[in-house]
Amino acid sequence: MSEKQLSAVEAELYDRQIRLWGIESQERLRAANVLLIGIRGLGSEIAKNILLSGINSLTILDDGIVTEEEQIKNFLLSRDSLRKKIAEEVLIKAQALNPLVKISSDTDSPLSKDLKFFENFTIIVATGIKTDLLLKIDKICRSKNVKLICGDVFGTFGYSLADFQEHDYFEDQVQLAGKKRFHDGAEKTTVKVQGVISYPDLNKVLILPNTKQNAASIKKSRRRNELFFLMLALIEFRNKHGRNPSISHKAADIKSLQSIRDDVFNLYQVDGSNCHLTDEIFNIIFGEVAPVCAVLGGVIAQEVIKAVSHKEVPINNIFLFDPITYDGKEESVGL
């Protein structure tokens, strides 16, 4: 895809961003066509941030209907949105964030889409979908050089997982012109440093119980952050039940999560008695907590900007938001 030159209006609107990451990166963003699957609490935060960055187009794919709960937590919805198509109802406020971006809605189910549909984008951001569909999308993305990042929020826990394939990037580094130290008055120059990161296929990362995938490579790796196993348990819960854990089924859902967690531990040969991933953590994984959506939405949008602009080093390949300490952790899995 050829990059689009910025108009005078765009150059003025994105002036601060151009000063931050340069005209070349902004032009790459201006040429980017983004597909966002899921426009719920997390999706609305992602949409906000990537719209403000100045992409070319955003397609919102979501077949959901606005509920009272969704109306409360999604700032892109209005008071009269109840029981209407959520992908259509967010358009007015989303467009107001940046009138220069082309925004469209698609109210089909992601499952109903022919896989060729996913070929037509620069990058896909996926939330709230099952693993089998995600892996199919990842396969088509790899064949067509489309970048992919997914993520979800469960209560106060959140994660993102990226497959940017063979991703080349550059970053600006300040270096001394001579051998003097900074405080000795040496001249400083900024140089462009290039690098490449190789991302694994998602089917080498999302290895879950009751599948034919081989987890040996991950089991042999260094000790994993325990939140990685929480992520897998929650993803497998959605695969099994077709929904996220619900507070209205709290007791039954916690029991199911405990069983799934134990299956994950068995698969990865984790000693549960030495793990901090205890039953208590399942009390705080219900719903989408708005501040966590804001944090994770900012992280995912920033990774989208890095992936499209090729500026700065992206996360390789998992980001985990700690539900207890509210710290962000990075993990590299499947490499």
Score class of each variant (00 low, 15 high):
6 L>T: 08
8 A>F: 02
10 E>Q: 09
11 A>N: 13
14 Y>P: 06
16 R>Y: 07
16 R>L: 09
17 Q>V: 13
25 S>D: 09
27 E>K: 13
28 R>L: 12
38 G>A: 03
44 S>A: 05
49 N>A: 11
53 S>M: 13
60 I>V: 15
66 V>R: 01
66 V>K: 01
70 E>L: 13
73 K>G: 03
75 F>L: 09
79 R>K: 15
80 D>F: 05
85 K>D: 00
94 A>G: 08
100 L>W: 02
106 D>E: 06
108 D>C: 09
110 P>I: 14
114 D>H: 13
115 L>N: 14
119 E>A: 03
122 T>H: 00
122 T>D: 00
124 I>T: 10
149 I>W: 00
159 Y>S: 03
161 L>V: 11
165 Q>N: 04
166 E>L: 07
170 F>N: 02
171 E>D: 14
174 V>K: 03
181 R>F: 13
182 F>L: 15
183 H>L: 13
183 H>G: 01
186 A>G: 15
190 T>Y: 00
192 K>M: 03
198 S>Q: 07
199 Y>E: 00
201 D>T: 06
202 L>V: 06
205 V>M: 03
207 I>D: 04
210 N>E: 00
221 S>Y: 06
228 F>S: 05
236 E>V: 03
236 E>H: 15
238 R>H: 10
243 R>N: 07
245 P>H: 10
247 I>G: 15
249 H>Y: 15
257 L>T: 00
257 L>G: 05
258 Q>D: 03
263 D>M: 10
270 V>K: 06
277 L>E: 09
280 E>G: 12
281 I>F: 14
297 G>M: 12
303 E>M: 03
306 K>R: 14
307 A>Y: 10
307 A>T: 04
312 E>C: 05
319 F>Y: 05
319 F>Q: 02
322 D>F: 02
323 P>N: 09
324 I>G: 01
329 K>C: 12
